[in-house]
Structures are given as structure tokens and as C-alpha cells.
Amino acid sequence: MAVLTIENVSKSFRDVSRGETIAALHEVSCTIGDQEFVAILGPSGCGKSTLLNILAGFDAPSHGRVLVDGRPIARPGPDRGVVFQEYALFPWLTVQQNIEFGLRGRAADRSATARRYVELVGLRGFEHRYPKELSGGMRQRVSLARVLAVDPAVLLMDEPFAALDALTRQLMQRELLEIWARTRKTVVFVTHSIDEALTLADRLYIMSARPGRILEVIDIDLPRPRDLAAPQVNDLRGRINGLIEGEVRRAFMERAQALDG
């Protein structure tokens, strides 16, 4: 059980070298219900990773607060698993050891548990490989398995499939939906791809260009697996495209102006 509450969250960074303050998030509020699959979409640099880092407990908001099940988030914890875009595997550990990493003193039979997750993400036979010996898609699956093994109530995923080729990406999306259907976690999924969001999410948060605000919330009440060519999906895609395009153009113009001035 995990409900995420984001209340009036703003975040600014101090750019020490230029002596400026960069506003990354501006008064973001939303509630993500238990077992929901939520996607966050927005132009590059709008603060998506910043928001995810705050939910993970890596960073504190400048204003506002974030809660899990009503308790403020103070630090990272195994109740909120993070799948990093850069995989962040421990290169000195094998696949098996990476997946066991978070199971210290938790599961009585760590290695059996880890092996179960190796199978789940289809990496049987690769248990004793090091990350450097794996392809990008395989590394991403290890990263997913490592987080799933500690069984977090929340899954925070930052563009996890961005570096994958289209085919592997589809495969991973399907696997993720299967896992989610089985384990019913709350998922927050950051992506740049509208189609990926339309394939996966119950609800879509569209963010504005920096400083990131929530521009629009779109519910996707369509059964899965979804047909991306279906007319309802096409309608949604058109709408989202329009919103994002406007934001990207605005962000671009602002940057150009900042450069001129």
C-alpha cells in the first residue's frame, strides 16, 4: 500500500558558478493513488528527474512537502525503488550479486530470491556475468530486478527504456506491465515518449517547460494491452502532442532569449 502526496512542491538550485538561482519546479501538487501507474511527460530540463529525486528522498524540496502514506519523505528507503536511466549497477558485482545487494539481512534465502528475479527478467544463464559483459537492455533488466527483489511499494522509473532499441523497448514495456499486474505496485514512470506513456499509464501528468508545473492531467481509461492505432489513442496522442509542442517551443524561445540578453 502506497499513496504518494506531493503538496505545493517547489525546488530551486543554486548555480554557484554564475551566482544564479535556477527554479526547477514550481508549486507542483498531485496525489498518486495506491497501485496506480502514472507517467510524467514533459520537455527536456523541465524538472522531471528533480521531482523523481525528491520522491526518492535523494533531494529535499525547497518549498512544500512530499508524503508516502501520510508520512513525510526524509531519506531514500527500500519502500521506494528507483530504476535509474543510467542503470547504476555496481560494476564489481555479478548479475546475481547486484540483485542480492538490497537483500542483506532481509530475505532468509537471498540467493534463491535473487535467482527468482533473475528468471523473472529473463536473465537465466547470465547470473555470473559482470555488468560490462551485458547489453544495455540486459543491464536495464538487472536494474529492474535489483529493485523488484526488495519488493518496494513504489517504483520510481526515470526514462528507464530511453536508451533501448525499439524492439527491446517494447519487450521491456510488456514485461513491466506484467510485473505490475502481478505485484500491483504504485509506479511513477518518467518518459519522453508519448507512445510509451500511452502504452503504460493509467494517468498522465504533462509538465510545462522550466520551471516545471503540472500543465495537464490526462486519464487513460483504456484496457491493456493497448492498440496504439486505435482512434481513442490517436485522439489522445494529438492532444498531448499539441500541448508538448507548445511547451517545447516556449522553452526553446526562452532559452534563445536568454542567450540574446
Binding site: P78, L89, G102, R104
Partner: peptide
């Protein structure tokens, strides 16, 4: 790499560990 430290913390590892 700071991201590895984050990954470890997220997996429930204490600072001494």
C-alpha cells in the same frame, strides 16, 4: 559515482555499510 551511492541508499544500505 554519486549515482552508485544513491542506488545503495535506495536499496536500504546504511552509510557505514
Amino acid at each position: 559515482p554519486p549515482i552508485l551511492v544513491r542506488a545503495a541508499r535506495m536499496l536500504g544500505t546504511g552509510s557505514g555499510e
